[in-house]
């Protein structure tokens, strides 16, 4: 994949979409073959990696500091989360957690995004915002790999149906 491109990995439950994402991220070793990539990679999966007992703002701040992101709070307003910054993460709903994890991912500033089911649990408005952010990332030259069984509203997105490669 070149800069600016997006790939949508589809397939039924349990076919190995999430495992493939973890292999691409370098967290799992592939059974055979290898992964080659240049640039850092950011992963969004079902684990938010935000401290449940901390207020959302503080939890995001930790990753902001680790990633040396100066405007860690800015993304929160893009994702309509300003009013949630003082709420402990464990009180957030499924969709709000997903948005929070997405904010963490954006703040990382990595050129390669690996998104595992990014739209799960989101309402229509949040889905629109996140799709817009993905488009913006790709138009800035970033790469996006999305594993989802939901349809993605991305114009120049290639699709990789894993069923065709299943053993």
């Amino acid at each position: 994949m070149d800069g600016g491109s997006a790939l949508h990995i589809t397939g039924s439950n349990g076919i190995g979409k999430s495992s493939l994402m973890r292999i691409l991220a370098g967290l799992l070793r592939p059974y055979s073959g290898s992964v080659q990539r240049t640039g850092t990679v950011a992963l969004l999966d079902e684990n938010p990696a935000l401290d449940p007992q901390l207020p959302l703002g503080k939890a995001l701040q930790f990753w902001g500091r680790v990633d040396r992101c100066d405007d860690a709070g800015e993304i929160a307003s893009v994702l309509d989360m300003d009013s949630l910054l003082d709420v402990p993460f464990r009180y957030l709903s499924t969709g709000q957690r997903k948005r929070a994890a997405f904010a963490r991912l954006v703040n990382q500033g990595a050129p390669i995004w690996l998104l595992d089911e990014p739209l799960n649990g989101l309402d229509a408005e949040a889905r629109k915002r996140i799709t817009a952010l993905i488009k913006l990332h790709c138009s800035d030259g970033g790469i996006c790999v999305i594993a989802s069984h939901q349809a993605m509203d991305l114009p120049d997105c290639e699709t990789l149906p894993l069923e065709e490669y299943a053993l």
Binding site: G26, L27, A42, L43, D45, P48, A49, L50, W63, V66
Partner: peptide, 13 residues
């Protein structure tokens, strides 16, 4: 481990 914090730290090298 459950939260995925170690995964995220590993991604950051």
């Amino acid at each position: 481990l459950e939260l995925g914090v170690f995964d995220q730290l590993a991604l950051r090298g």
